[in-house]
Amino acid sequence: MKDQRLETRVDTQTIKIEARKAQVYYGTNHAIKDVDVDIMDKTVTAFIGPSGCGKSTFLRCLNRMNDTIPSCRVEGSITLEGESIYDPRVDPVQLRARIGMVFQKPNPFPKSIYDNVAYGPKIHGLTRNKAELDAIVESCLRKAALWNEVQDRLNAPGTGLSGGQQQRLCIARAIATSPEVLLMDEPCSALDPIATAQVEELIDELRSQFSVVIVTHSMQQAARVSQRTAFFHLGNLVEFGETGQIFTNPKDPRTESYISGRIG
């Protein structure tokens, strides 16, 4: 499925996460079949596909969030910088600190704005004193383009913000632990177009520091923010390549049908 040009790019850029023959089962239901994906460092990778195609499921495998679902089972190999993340020696808690996640619905904790952002650094002991913590909170809120709106009310509850602000707060919270990869599960599905545009701009800026994986239902969004796109259908990875190529010159007829709106 990958063309020659992609292969060469793989050689020049570092691979952050590599999945080979990844399978996911929910009980007896085979949700993800034989998925091979390389997530590049400092790149935005988009997962697109119709509802129920398994893109969110696969995303949740990358930081072992599926561990919280008892009936879920993952097979195959998924590695982060060459080390298997499903190795029994790997602590999923440490792993999730390295691979952050932003969810579909904004889910700020019932705490102040400050405490929401400071949550990760506090539990991981990333700061030595209050001043350092303050600095992290400020820089993360600035990166999330929220600082100007909330700097006067850092002690107000995070749940009191508007939907778009809440989602940017969740992004600030996720980048406060300085993860290496940021997983975003339809981060804009609950937002209006203006907030969406802000978040997309933010994703583009984050690319300079992290590798970002974003699941989205909006093909325009995938085309706007990502450099590489993976198309999932019925649990299979149909096509994976450069975003421009996927949208202008898809190899697989299913990809073409989906992009042109005939399936999905």
Partner: peptide, 15 residues
């Protein structure tokens, strides 16, 4: 308590 809050915290690497 909504599961999304737990997911949010676990996703940040909290035990």
């Amino acid at each position: 308590v909504p599961q999304s809050l737990r997911d949010g915290s676990l996703g940040l690497g909290a035990t």
